[in-house]
Design a protein around this nucleic acid. Structure first.
Length: 592
RNA sequence: GCACCCGUAGCUCAGCUGGAUAGAGCGCUGCCCUCCGAAGGCAGAGGCCAGGGGUUCGAAUCCCUUCGGGUGCGCCA
């Protein structure tokens, strides 16, 4: 069954067509723009709709008149449980619902368990989410952390909303940096052979993580390359080095709990001829030409000189300038390869299902790249496939409020692994979603491990632990069977009438709606914020029970009400667990 | 010079794709443990949503513009 707000929206649509058939309203009123949502201020009721304002013009009626007409008809539908309605402000139609509606929704949630909030809004829509895509030149560092979590959680969120999701990692194994990797590995290989190589030359990767690779190469190939020219060993060592780096990266991802369905290789794609194929598609649309670009104003590069280039007409699709596809040596630019890659993901590869929506998670330093890529996808798919690029801002590492010093030159940059080992994947994942992706966020080692409400991870986990604790205590007086979700769902939920209880039930009931909205907006952080709200509501109810004994969960002289209260506690526990599941965070049973 | 992101309480940030009297945490002030976990909760003070124009029934949200911060700007990926 659809969630409560959707049921109201459907009923509202039906009422509109009914009234149109009766001639009370013109035909063809579009309910799509009408919102049905909880009002910000609870004093306005339980459910609010702007139907009066949005449709007043096409209906040829005043907002309040239209709202009254629609509201009176909806009130006659018993399934909606409307006990009162009012027309407020400029024409809001506000409904007050019978408590049984919220109690019923709680029962629905209990029966669904972790599946509560699952939705079909994404049914039949294929989404490709590309995230991490760190260069395969070494282990991951903290900078990769945020994008990895945001992408992973967004993918889970979309899956919960019913989208058909592919999680993808793009291996940048075709550029100059993997040649540098190969040379760096060769240096370690010679060291492993016992040759005195001196310090790692500037320009190569100095990290110790290449030492074991050098030893493996020495062991596997012996000294066959000791005196050999680079051309002889480059390809083999590069291949082996990339494979070794991917092993490191996959270990790091696993430690963070991030997974991908697909690792696709840039090199393999290029070698398959995909670049030529995608550019042919652009060529066929007349979108490629040879021309000369203007130098950027105010910041002319030193070596700038006018030069004819092969260009893509990105300006026809909203970009600021047309973009080059070929380097001066004749090879493809990164952009050309990326065009091919996106074409591949969307419609150009018969071996893929083809995505309707492409999502990329990038660092904010790639902001300048967004317009041209969106333009390319629009051009290649004739606007049928959308590309949404989420840019993640920096994470500031702190310890007790003091910035953690990092210097890549000194080699003491912080790895992803160090952070995960220090505070745990659960805390890292949660904190990464406590900000919208496009604002920078502070990550304080001390704070994320603190056991206080300063720490949002703790605050939510504590609520879950408290709920678990109540259920544990209840076992003393009740059987496990009495505490089963089905039994709880069938309990006397109509006895849950305190305003704090009803408020918490309303919050829980908005979970399915929140999942859909967050998924459609591609905003996973909303899950974390919502869980904070649920936790706050539960903590408040808990403390109210300290002040008023009649509101305590376990009441020895009223087993009937006790079971109903436990149903609410279980509902809280279940929704928190359901939300944490999307975040990939393990709910804790007790704090230690 | 141009593009993109950000600017909301003293601080850190939400604000449900345009809704009603703009919210939360920290900090500040004052309360709540004989009681299911006080590792919590309640109440109060605190705002020209950076400034200015516009769009409409209605703007923190959309458009233009100014200011401030960040990121980027042909052969790096």
């Amino acid at each position: 069954m659809p969630h409560i707000f959707k049921r109201f929206h459907m009923a509202l649509s039906d009422v509109l067509s009914e009234l149109a058939e009766e001639g009370a309203l013109p035909a063809g009123l579009d309910p799509a723009k009408v919102t049905v949502e909880p009002p910000r201020d609870a004093s306005h009721g339980d459910i609010s709709t702007n139907v009066g304002m949005v449709l007043s013009k096409p209906a040829g009626m005043k907002p309040r008149g239209l709202a009254t007409l629609v509201g009176d008809r909806m009130r006659t539908l018993p399934a909606l449980g409307i006990v009162n309605l009012s027309i407020d402000g400029p024409g809001f139609l506000n409904f007050r619902l019978a408590p049984s509606m919220w109690q019923g929704e709680l029962a629905t949630g209990l029966r669904a368990g972790l599946a509560y909030g699952d939705s079909h809004v994404g049914q039949g829509v294929r989404v490709n989410v590309e995230y991490v895509s760190a260069n395969p030149t070494g282990p991951m560092h903290v900078g990769h952390c945020r994008g990895a979590v945001v992408g992973d959680v967004l993918a889970s969120l979309l899956a919960k909303a019913g989208f058909d999701v592919v999680r993808e990692y793009y291996i940048n194994d075709a550029g100059a940096q993997v040649d540098v990797l190969a040379r760096s590995a060769y240096h370690r290989y010679r060291e492993a052979l016992g040759d005195d190589m001196g310090a790692v030359p500037v320009g190569l990767y100095p990290g110790d993580y290449l030492v074991p690779l050098g030893q493996n190469l020495a062991q596997q190939y012996g000294d066959i390359w000791r005196e050999a020219d680079e051309a002889v060993w480059l390809e083999t060592i590069r291949r082996d080095a990339i494979a070794a780096m991917l092993v490191l990266i996959k270990e790091d991802l696993a430690a963070l709990g991030v997974r991908h369905d697909l690792f696709s290789s840039e090199r393999a794609m290029v070698e398959s001829g995909a670049v030529e194929a995608s550019l042919a598609a652009l060529e066929a649309r007349g979108l490629i030409y040879v021309g000369v670009l203007e130098p950027p104003k105010g910041k002319t590069p030193d070596e700038w000189e006018p030069r004819p280039q092969t260009l893509f007409r990105a300006t026809e699709f909203g970009d600021d300038v047309d973009r080059p596809l070929k380097k001066s040596d004749g090879s493809w630019t990164y952009f050309a390869n990326d065009i091919a890659y996106h074409y591949d993901k969307a419609i150009g590869n018969p071996d893929r299902a083809g995505a309707n929506i492409l999502i990329n998670i990038f660092g904010a330093d790639h902001g300048g790249y967004v317009k041209r890529m969106v333009a390319a996808v629009k051009a290649l798919t004739d606007g049928k496939v959308s590309l949404d690029i989420k840019l993640c801002q920096l994470v500031n590492l702190l310890d007790k409020g003091v910035p953690v010093k990092m210097s890549k030159r000194a080699g003491n940059f912080v790895t992803l692994r160090e952070v995960v080992d220090e505070v745990g994947a659960n805390a890292v994942r949660f904190i990464m979603l406590t900000r919208k992706n496009d604002v920078s966020l502070d990550f304080d080692f001390a704070k994320v491990q603190e056991q206080s409400k300063d720490n949002p991870v703790f605050y939510v986990q504590y609520a879950h632990a408290r709920a678990t604790s109540v259920m544990r205590n209840a076992v003393d007086s009740l059987s496990h069977d009495q505490l089963s979700p089905e039994h709880l769902a069938n309990s006397s939920l109509n006895r849950l009438t305190d305003e704090t209880e009803l408020g918490l039930m309303r919050t829980l009931a908005s979970w399915p709606r929140l999942v859909e909205a967050a998924a459609e907006a591609h905003e996973p952080h909303r899950i974390a914020f919502y869980l904070g709200e649920v936790a706050a509501g539960f903590h408040a109810l808990w403390n109210k029970g300290r002040d008023e004994a009649s509101l305590r969960f376990i009441l020895p002289d009223d087993p009937d009400l006790t079971v109903a209260r436990l149903a609410l506690v279980q509902g809280v526990k279940s929704v928190i667990a359901s939300g944490l599941a999307i975040l990939g965070v393990k709910p804790v049973e007790e704090m230690r």
